[in-house]
Design a protein around this nucleic acid. Structure first.
Lengths: 127, 127
DNA sequence: GTAGACGTTCGAGCGCGCTCTAAGTCAAGG
DNA sequence: CCTTGACTTAGAGCGCGCTCGAACGTCTAC
């Protein structure tokens, strides 16, 4: 029998590893973005491997501007079980498309910036 | 003598062409993001070619997440005259770098999403 | 001359995503 | 014992970027 003691860490450590603040971690839990995390004897939160992986996904989605409401929805689907897999995949696909669109826009604008910058450089040389 | 009557349009038209709301246009002017725009005899704003071009730049900077404070700073430099060109170029370069960083992050995450999506697809097929 | 569409100013309000405060619990160390 | 410090909760507050409302002015058509 394997006792499931998978590297339980404190909220401070989880904060440091995830790059989020302890405040934010509690906030995420409150709003249902994180499944209620386990507690130690003293009632303190203990974060395990899975929690950290989940946080990693969350931060990826956040940095690509997925709205929190959508992330909550995704989290709910995960909690509902495997039969929601198709819907989850659809959400990820939608988001991936959004990310692609974002990238296209960025590339276009980067080009415009390069153009403007070189115009400035030219101006500076022609004086 | 050329009379300077360069296609003066109303705020509603400027809103439509720029994709911003009239409310937002006035707001941008209030906070110094747009140099005070000309007025018709009735006191109504009249937007010209230059204004529209400026708006176009603004929206590009916004969609690439340049903070409004920074854009205001840039606008101030423009108003101060040509001797600020070097500083303006520096700002654009900084922002271009930020955009590149953003793009890199997006690419990385898009890859992760693709991976997760294909895992879901696999799951669905193996049942 | 009056309705209705469009414009003006000033200031308040809002949605998002945190961020922080206050008040309390608990454990370890001096 | 008492302090220190990491944790807990509930709820208030904040910065950003708009967004909207109220009250009023102006132009056009009927």
């Amino acid at each position: 029998m394997s006792t499931r003691t998978t590297t339980q860490i404190t909220i401070a450590q989880a904060a440091e590893r995830s790059g989020l603040s302890a405040h934010t971690l509690r906030y995420y839990e409150r709003i249902g973005l994180i499944h209620p995390v386990g507690r130690g004897e003293n009632g303190h939160r203990r974060y395990g491997r899975d929690d950290l992986e989940w946080l990693e996904l969350l931060t990826k989605l956040r940095t690509t501007d997925m709205p929190i409401r959508q992330m909550v929805q995704y989290a709910e689907l995960v909690r509902e079980g495997p039969h929601t897999a198709a819907r989850r995949r659809a959400m990820l696909e939608d988001h991936r498309d959004a990310v692609h669109a974002q990238m296209t826009a960025l590339e276009e604008i980067a080009a415009v910036l390069d153009h403007k910058i070189s115009m400035y450089t030219e101006m500076e040389n022609n004086t």
